[in-house]
Design a protein around this nucleic acid. Sequence first.
DNA 1: TACAACAGTTGCATAAATACAAATGTCTGG
DNA 2: CCAGACATTTGTATTTATGCAACTGTTGTA
Lengths: 157, 157
Amino acid sequence: MTSSRDAASAAITATVTSSRALLGIVAQSMSGALEELSLVQFRLLVVLDSSGPQRMGDLATALGVHASTLSRTVDRLESGEWITREVSPESRREVIVAVSNKGHGMVAEVTRTRRRAIAAVLQGLDPADREAVRLGMTLFAEAAGEPSAPDMLTLGL
Amino acid sequence: MTSSRDAASAAITATVTSSRALLGIVAQSMSGALEELSLVQFRLLVVLDSSGPQRMGDLATALGVHASTLSRTVDRLESGEWITREVSPESRREVIVAVSNKGHGMVAEVTRTRRRAIAAVLQGLDPADREAVRLGMTLFAEAAGEPSAPDMLTLGL
DNA sequence: TACAACAGTTGCATAAATACAAATGTCTGG
DNA sequence: CCAGACATTTGTATTTATGCAACTGTTGTA
């Protein structure tokens, strides 16, 4: 007979294997961006793109880096016109950073590429299997919950 | 009615969401290693651990970096005793790099942590749902195939 | 209004990753 | 056996990321 432990283990192994494939897709989708930006810079762009305009200090906290480190990274991104940096209308000692159109376009491009790559994989399945993937992925995502921001930052995502 | 395009799109979205969760787990599993090693160094360790001992030149090619760059990175890993570096028994001009016990242990530890984290997530599902995840993940992994090495390297995996 | 708290930048300093060029040592074919 | 090819390392230089300390300017408050 097959024990429930074997069944659980099979699910784990399948998930690990699948995570490798998914990781490959994610990495590949980022390769274009990483020709123009460092991983750290791209990470900043993603955070800013998803959270909206931020004060320097808050952004430094969100990224877990020193304010001076952020200031330099923002220098570089600004000179590449990926982001904008403006004195806050609220307080002249605060500086608000926001993604530029160019910056948003890059993030969107990566997202689009990722989605397209996943779509291409699913294309290779018949509808019933595709539905099985949808179900499995949905169940897993629900059980896992949202990844924490600090976790994602480890890999610069 | 629900078109087949909607169904496909739902599968894509579910997979994208799931990939985020998986990425979080992967990143978290690496966080311990990244306190002691840089991403580049860890990447080298993983490649070496999975492909076995390599000549410097081949390793540089596999990692897509200049030989001199590799030489320096190997210096650092060697001084931390993560790897060994020995003159090849075949030819005295060749140098063979291999993971040390310590290095292998680190990679294994990350792998173990990852597996455990995934197991914990699956633990939260009842057997039927877990089986659905197993099936979905298996189908996806089969359809996606093995990720290419260069792709994985983008993220240092 | 003066002073303390705050936000950000700038002046160091360090470490890592990177590549190119040059040097060193080893092989190999003629 | 020796000249060129080959594998690796070393010298040099650049870029990025990083943090601490000091500085500048702004705000709030006693």
